[in-house]
Design a protein around this nucleic acid. Structure first.
Lengths: 106, 106
DNA sequence: GACAAATATGAATATACGTTCATATAATAT
DNA sequence: ATATTATATGAACGTATATTCATATTTGTC
């Protein structure tokens, strides 16, 4: 399926998505959202980063449409806007685990 | 499966993998290798980047064990060292395609 | 050994970006 | 209206890294 020719524009878009995903703070946010929507305060708590940092990174996730927003009074709730994020997590997680195995029997 | 608690060390390793994958040149190299092993000269041709750049990026892929190496006389052949790369490609590709659909009916 | 071809490596540069700090905005409550 | 809570935003800084240029290394051939 993917072992066809992929044009450069598509590769660039793939690069873009992977770039957004390849940050510790954003990964923690995405992971937190796997179990359902959370507001910013909750995310700050779970991720363990500063308010400003979490807010900035949420902006990045928003701009790239990985998350969508819902406002309720003063709270802002974020949730995953993409079913593929789950699969992305699965694949990357599986990779990391396998590499860990291989390392053990060096 | 992944909607469990994932410790920070694992997240860091996921970040690391995604970082390696999130580069245009490296993505093109990985994509070229999906169809089978290639030597450096062939990769330079396919990717359309300079000899130095391809060689540098191959080093990054090597260091992170995404590719493995085989030498034959003066040629060096690279191939994917991981079955998950295929799946990673599939997932990211699917994501990009879906986002493209959604954009069309803005 | 000298030379050529294939690949790797090191230094230098420029740019992108993650994080912090300070401040702004928006909504609610008193 | 003021104060408070929740969230967003802008500037500044430091660091990581992609790319280029020049040079080194390795292997094979003459």
């Amino acid at each position: 399926m993917v072992d066809q020719i992929i044009d450069d524009e598509t590769i660039e878009e793939m690069e873009q998505l992977l770039n957004v995903a390849s940050d510790f703070t954003r990964l923690k946010i995405l992971h937190a959202l796997l179990s359902g929507e959370k507001n910013v305060g909750e995310l700050i708590e779970i991720v363990g980063a500063s308010q400003s940092l979490v807010s900035h990174q949420l902006q990045v996730l928003r701009n790239n449409r990985l998350v969508s927003v819902r406002k309720d009074k003063t709270r802002v709730y974020y949730r995953l806007d993409d079913e593929h994020i789950n699969m992305l997590f699965e694949v990357v997680y599986a990779h990391v685990m396998e590499k860990r195995m291989k390392k053990e029997d060096y």
